[in-house]
Nucleic acid binder design. Structure first.
Length: 587
DNA sequence: GCCGTTTTCGGCCCGACTGTTTTCAGTCG
């Protein structure tokens, strides 16, 4: 199989990780990290640059890494990577997830005790072997043991809906307390990343009320452990295993601190590099001139109030938090405006929802009413097709019955004068050979067809790509549903060349959804730049099986914004009439 | 390993915190 940009980036990241564990120069590891991000954010396949010998023109890729990439493309291996793999036990890579353990200590422990497995490390913490090592002690050993304990009980990351709920309860607990002025979420949750590790909350408040504020937090029923508590920071663990860091922030520098804790780390690094280029330095307290010696001149802070101000001081426009991943956002903002990104209020209708006709929990009418209440103008109902027996998929006769029900409902809505409309859709299985689940004459009767893979998900990647391509070549297919089939934190998606499918789908004039279910968020935002470049249409689809599921659209919009999509590229920002015309045009 | 109208060598982003230490290395975000 041809190496995709994603494959290549994964190999480079692996190099960076193993280099760190091998004790190599940290900047060398950083170079591989940078190269990995450069590869990931390229619009075109790296293969093209390998063929034309222009790899080293990409910033972050020099002669050496270009040779590694070429070797990987041509042979499927990288000698330097293989060498590292043989010298570093696989088990140690997982140790990097342990809080308080970095590459240096991992090496030290491994070399001194000769252990490579997590369970052995835990035992070594308990029997005092770790504590006896030079540079470590009883507290380090206990911290490591406790962290392994947590890892055994909970995943290190959670879905974004869970993180949103935790952050909401923390906010609720604080916002009415006396002296609290401002509460903001930062970190990966503010960036709307698909999964969240720690949750960061920033608070500005009267210094006199900090104590009572923290008292209120640690007394919350969901708080099971206080990890740290000082004058400006309080870290807690919730009963779902989430770590929440609450930080007190000085009002005068709130924007700089907010930016700092929003990250991403890579974005911050890029920003600080830009600051240096302008003779400035950036930290969590603001922007400062550099002295001739290259030190921060802390006595002469540059004035700012908002994040916009801080970016402007660095010669940049404000970058929406969703895009702060060091994935080409600085280039993007020069050619676009932050205002262009699709917003939740741009979404005018709901596409991809289920009813009791298949595996949904409520009737079409109930789903429609919920859409109306949420302010949407239409609902594209998409129950499962006949092959999805496990989900009560519709045979042809039931399809016709459902159409009659939808016609009746639409007639009623028309008489009510509210203008609400239900589109007849189907979530058709894409069969293993790429056919859709009904004959063309039935497919022709739907307003639109979502094609999804629900069986034989582990098909060989090349065969999976062909399966999807054939489905897209059917002129009745409108939208590809959850393309990789991943379930976040649970199941990897199929590793087929999604970018090839994106090109194929864009050329065919069909769309690929952004499934907004917090367990899917598929397609991945990382393909956004490439998808935009080839003109792909998308849609933010809740895949709702219950009226509450409609609200998941918010997570999908976050992903669409991370991907850099503007409203015109998202199908369900269209009016019902414009959307109907787009569907017709696709046929 | 990458990069350069100040440099082809010597930098590479920044500060807080912690624990293990007598001045700092490692980790974290």
């Amino acid at each position: 199989m041809a190496a995709t940009n994603k494959d290549i980036a994964a190999r480079l990241e692996e190099m960076a990780t193993l280099l760190r564990l091998s004790g190599a120069n940290e900047f060398k590891a950083i170079a591989f990290d940078k190269a990995a991000r450069a590869v990931e954010s390229m619009d075109a396949p790296v293969l093209q640059r390998v063929e034309t010998g222009t790899l080293t023109l990409v910033p972050g890729i020099g002669v050496s890494i270009a040779a590694d990439i070429r070797e990987y493309v041509e042979t499927g291996r990288i000698t330097a990577l293989d060498d590292l793999k043989t010298s570093i036990p696989k088990g140690l890579i997982r140790w990097l997830d342990i809080s308080g353990l970095g590459p240096k200590k991992i090496r030290k422990i491994h070399e001194a005790l000769g252990i490579t497995e997590m369970a052995d490390l835990k035992a070594a913490c308990e029997d005092g072997r770790v504590a006896s090592l030079n540079g470590l002690g009883a507290k380090s050993a206990e911290r490591i043991r406790k962290s392994i304990d947590w890892m055994e009980r909970f995943a290190d990351r959670c879905h974004i809906d869970e993180a949103t709920a935790v952050a909401g309860s923390i906010r609720d607990a604080m916002q009415d307390l006396p002296g609290v002025r401002r509460i903001e979420v930062a970190g990966s949750l503010r960036r709307r990343l698909e999964t969240i590790g720690d949750i960061d909350v920033l608070v500005s408040a009267d210094s006199a009320s900090v104590e009572s504020l923290f008292d209120g937090i640690v007394a919350l029923p969901t708080v099971v452990e206080v990890l740290a508590r000082g004058p400006s920071k309080c870290s807690i663990r919730t009963d779902t295993g989430r770590q929440v860091d609450i930080r007190m922030v000085d009002d005068a520098v709130f924007a700089a601190t907010w930016m700092y804790f929003t990250g991403s780390k890579a974005h911050n690094v890029a920003l600080r590099q830009r600051a240096r280029e302008r003779g400035l330095t950036l930290n969590e307290y603001g922007v400062f001139p550099l002295t001739p010696e290259g030190e921060a001149d802390l006595a002469r802070p540059l004035p700012f109030n908002t994040e916009e101000d801080v970016y402007r001081l660095l010669g940049e426009s404000w970058i929406p938090p969703e895009m702060r991943e060091d994935r080409g956002e600085f280039e993007w903002i020069r050619a676009h405006s932050a205002e262009e990104l699709v917003r939740e209020t741009d979404i005018r209708g709901v596409l991809h929802a289920h009813s009791t006709w298949s595996d949904g929990e409520t009737s079409i009418e109930t789903m429609a009413m919920a859409c109306m209440e949420a302010g949407y103008a239409y609902l594209g109902i998409t129950d499962h097709s006949r092959s999805a027996a496990y989900a009560n998929g519709l045979d042809t006769e039931r399809v016709f019955s459902q159409w009659r029900e939808i016609d009746h409902l639409n007639d009623r809505f028309a008489r009510d004068g509210g203008g609400f409309r239900i589109f007849k859709g189907i979530e058709s299985d894409i069969l293993t050979d790429g056919r859709l689940d009904y004959p063309d004459e039935v497919l022709a009767g739907f307003d639109f067809v979502i094609g999804s893979v629900h069986s034989v998900l582990d098909m060989a990647p090349d065969a999976m790509l062909e399966r999807f391509k054939r489905a897209v070549d059917n002129r009745y297919l409108t939208i590809i549903g959850h393309p990789t089939g991943r379930l976040l934190l649970r199941r990897e998606g199929n590793a087929f060349d999604l970018e090839a499918l994106i090109r194929h789908t864009a050329d065919a004039g069909a769309a690929i959804e952004i499934n907004a279910n917090p367990w899917r968020l598929d397609m991945d935002w990382r393909h956004g730049r490439m998808a935009r470049a080839c003109g792909l249409m998308s849609a933010v689809c809740p895949d709702a099986h219950h009226p509450d599921g409609i609200a998941d659209i918010t997570y999908g919009v976050g992903i669409a914004r991370k991907a850099g999509f503007a409203a015109p590229q998202i199908l369900n920002t269209k009016s019902a009439d414009a959307l109907a015309a787009w569907f017709q045009n696709r046929h």
